[in-house]
Design a protein around this nucleic acid. Sequence first.
DNA 1: CGCCATGTTGATTTCTATCAAATTGAGTGG
DNA 2: CCACTCAATTTGATAGAAATCAACATGGCG
Lengths: 263, 263
Amino acid sequence: MSFFCLFFIYQAHPLTDDPRPGVGSTTHTVCAHHIAGEDCKFCSIRLISVCSALEPDEWASLERLASDIAFAEKMPLIREGDDSIWVYNVTSGIARLVRTLADGRRQVFGFAMPGDFLGLSLNPNWSFSVESVTPVTCCRFSRQSFSAFMDQKPHLLKKMHEFASHELSLARDHMMLLGRLSAEEKIAAFVWRMRQRWARVEGHAKLNVPLPMSRQDIADYLGLTIETVSRTINHLQRDRRLIIVPGGIRILTPNFFEDISSE
Amino acid sequence: MSFFCLFFIYQAHPLTDDPRPGVGSTTHTVCAHHIAGEDCKFCSIRLISVCSALEPDEWASLERLASDIAFAEKMPLIREGDDSIWVYNVTSGIARLVRTLADGRRQVFGFAMPGDFLGLSLNPNWSFSVESVTPVTCCRFSRQSFSAFMDQKPHLLKKMHEFASHELSLARDHMMLLGRLSAEEKIAAFVWRMRQRWARVEGHAKLNVPLPMSRQDIADYLGLTIETVSRTINHLQRDRRLIIVPGGIRILTPNFFEDISSE
DNA sequence: CGCCATGTTGATTTCTATCAAATTGAGTGG
DNA sequence: CCACTCAATTTGATAGAAATCAACATGGCG
């Protein structure tokens, strides 16, 4: 097993291209931090990521292709249109998948969380951007070598297909939300979805739901404006459905959220 | 090669459950028509479907698993929640992928056209309904046997993954449309998308774009109401962007549509 | 302590939905 | 072949939900 322990400062740009006022232009200059690869068998997401398809003895060969990389918050991991040199397994933190139109209108497709794979399609370039919301760490592979590895491991390909199918299913849920739900329903479904998503990362569901993304991110995810998001969340608080807490919300009436999400 | 030529009348129900007035309750009683399987090498979609992954000598073994099935227009191929006994390759016609909420709100996820595969995820049950818009013919496989066949053919699995990835990409385009485009932009993008989709089926793009689905289907696809769809299309006609023709529209200013779709 | 980003609240506008009615058009039977 | 029927579509008037425009509040951080 070859471990390269050089601490390489990966040059990249903070998020400065956003045309909306007040977005971007942080003082960070260090975006990504390439650190030593860790042993798969100590990996916290090995059981929930695509790697779960592999047998312990196969991890060794995958490790040889992997390197760990860390991103500060609000940094671009991937830019829409870029060649996809790398694919990523998110090991910690949250990133948003986003596309922006020429006039600045933005749509967030989803939030990548630990265990999620970026590059499921193995396409030669990216059709969306990925930006860290919190600090993010990833296990990174070159697309070429990961693809070649996959060709030798049909069970890994099968797992990738399962992940892509699951994403497709979530995408359809989201189309339903965007096309047919009211602002209140969108917020309620979002809160419930985040609760379930955290449960899968943490192993158990809680009524405290961390929402590390900004109101703008939530708005762009739900096809709303920041004002409507703020108003709706505060309205739900006034109705005693939830309480706004630092860094997220606390659900008071789980049934209300569950019913809206499943109807 | 075993060909079963019995003409079996498959019992199924017309679309009668739709809560909206005037939808459903056709006089058809014959839904699906199980007809003799055809030879893959004469199949019109062999080059654009998942079957394109297979070598000519592999078609023979796939044929043994396949049977052709025909549906009249406005018939259910698949009901949301059903066990997925079968998976389908659409060989002709158009079907809509749709989900309906308890209160009747509907979202159309997309339109399946010749070459499209229904059941990419190979999940044991369906998370959406599929209903024929025009008469539809499919090449049908039992999910179990298709899945087993796929396990023997990694290149077929890879093709399935490519198709799922492509669907995911289209799903993201559609999230952008639903979340951030205006009614006029939605209609224009839809028209352009249908034009491109026909081009892939027919091999060449035309300015005449057949739209066999109803205004209601278009509305439910775009997250609009039927009235807004009608008004917007007629507004585009008044602006000399297109002409409404029987069964579809004719594009007059391709650039206008292309620009809106790609911005 | 004050600055700037982020979030909240209020007033008003706008786009699309809703409600309502008229028109078209495809299919049916006389 | 043509009148009739019913569904589908179009058009018009009005309502309503969310966007927009505009302050104002909060809060983290130097």
